[in-house]
Design a protein around this nucleic acid. Structure first.
Lengths: 125, 125
DNA sequence: TGTATATTTAACCAGATGGTTAAATATACT
DNA sequence: AGTATATTTAACCATCTGGTTAAATATACA
């Protein structure tokens, strides 16, 4: 369970940087070489190399050496676990959120009624 | 589109901390007061207060003042956008990943065949 | 062997992050 | 008015993050 949490930490953290998300999108397009991945980004190659290391440490990509080139591939497993974590809670959150909506509506009505009747803002008993 | 990226940055970043994810889970359980949210965490109240601020800035929670208490509520909207971003790419990633699998299998077979035939490890080109 | 290419590592830096304690603010209670 | 409770803000600190440039490493090519 420590592991699970650490995985989510690393995954969400890796996904929090726009450059890294773009890299993951480039990988969708079939780009694999580090130099090619780096090309569109307005930063140095070492900077991109660092981003790749972050993605690799988080397990979001794997690397295969072919001669002097490194071929980068996505491993979607941890990202899907992150999505699962969201999905696991989304329904309850949505429910809570809807409850809040209706609560606020009701509070609005209560307030209007209270004002009309000259009641205080305090709850009774 | 800048906005969209910033939202994802803030959302994934907010989700990358285990304390903040636990807070979101506590909110599922109906906990709302700051003090109650802070109780299970082995850190000071100001530390939790900071985490709440991060969640609030990212738009993951909203806050309603009731007297001296702050009632915290989840807003699932940005989290669902983060999930959407993952979902939008998951299928292609999965496909790429499966392709890699079959590539590696094939390479494994090629290698085995090459060894049997006394071929070198170099590509013949 | 010498040179070019692909990529990482090292050293450095500014700013962000996540924690602390002490103090401030706002509200409630008697 | 005075005290207690709920919460944030301020000031501080160590560590992490994301970038830089220069150098190192590994492979390819002639």
């Amino acid at each position: 369970m420590v592991k699970y949490t650490q995985t989510l930490d690393l995954t969400f953290s890796a996904l929090s940087d726009p450059t890294r998300r773009e890299i993951l999108e480039q990988l969708s397009d079939g780009t694999t070489r580090v130099t090619d991945l780096a090309a569109p980004h307005r930063m140095s190659l070492p900077a991109v190399s660092k981003h790749l290391k972050v993605l690799e440490t988080a397990g979001l990509i794997t690397r295969t050496r072919v001669g002097r080139e490194h071929r980068i591939q996505v491993d979607p497993t941890p990202i899907l676990k992150a999505r699962d974590w969201i999905s696991m809670h989304a329904q309850v959150w949505q429910h809570q959120f809807d409850k809040l909506d209706s609560y606020l509506e009701q509070a609005q009505k209560d307030l209007a009624g209270a004002k009309k009747n000259g009641e205080s803002n305090e709850q009774q008993g």
